[in-house]
Amino acid sequence: MNKEILLAGFGGQGILFAGKVLAYCGLIDKKELSWLPSYGPEMRGGTANCSVCISDEPIASPLVSDPDMMMAMNQPSFEKFIGKVKSGGKAFIDSTMVNIKCSRNDIECYYIPATQLATENQITGTANIILIGKMIKESGLFSMETIKKALEKCISPKRMNLMGVNLKAIEIGMSL
């Protein structure tokens, strides 16, 4: 198994946190991995993306130029990265924030109104985790047990009250 994943959106949408959850899932499942965050100088509203490589073999480079899977949480990220997804790959798009469709027919695109679903379910701020739930469901990368363990590692002890909210977001994503 060798999966290269690119997550992209605005700063403040939880792109780096989502990548960290995937990376911890890989660690827990004893995979080789890399997690490479990239963000603009702005804290919120600037650009953010994160490359995650998960493999059974050692990883030669943490850079992801042709992802197997891509998550786009805003239109600029969608426009910038959709053309880079490998043929046969998968794209997970927050359709609340992206109002255009992919013209490619060689990849699978999943349009999930993640921001809207988070708001409707009173778990605002978890659109990133809803998309991760859908990604994990469609890829079969990790079990729910692994995801729970990863969230326990990623959520700081001071914010452990958010564990239930994040699990609910994963479940919403997996139910779609």
Score class of each variant (00 low, 15 high):
143 S>F: 05
95 S>M: 05
104 R>K: 06
111 Y>D: 02
151 L>W: 04
156 S>W: 02
12 G>T: 11
42 E>N: 00
7 L>V: 02
12 G>H: 06
173 G>M: 05
57 E>L: 12
147 I>V: 15
41 P>G: 00
133 G>F: 09
164 G>T: 15
91 A>Q: 07
145 E>T: 13
55 S>V: 08
150 A>E: 10
50 C>A: 09
95 S>C: 05
90 K>Y: 14
84 K>Y: 08
44 R>P: 08
96 T>P: 05
127 A>W: 11
90 K>H: 14
66 D>N: 14
127 A>I: 08
70 M>E: 04
29 D>L: 03
2 N>V: 14
153 K>L: 14
29 D>G: 01
107 I>W: 13
12 G>E: 12
73 M>Y: 05
1 M>G: 09
35 W>P: 02
121 N>D: 12
126 T>D: 01
98 V>R: 02
3 K>S: 15
62 P>K: 07
11 G>A: 11
20 K>N: 15
163 M>H: 08
156 S>E: 09
25 C>D: 02
162 L>N: 01
152 E>M: 10
92 F>Q: 08
42 E>V: 05
102 C>N: 09
60 A>L: 12
156 S>L: 14
54 I>L: 03
50 C>P: 06
80 K>R: 12
49 N>G: 10
58 P>Q: 07
51 S>F: 10
40 G>T: 12
64 V>P: 04
51 S>I: 09
49 N>L: 12
6 L>R: 14
73 M>Q: 05
165 V>H: 12
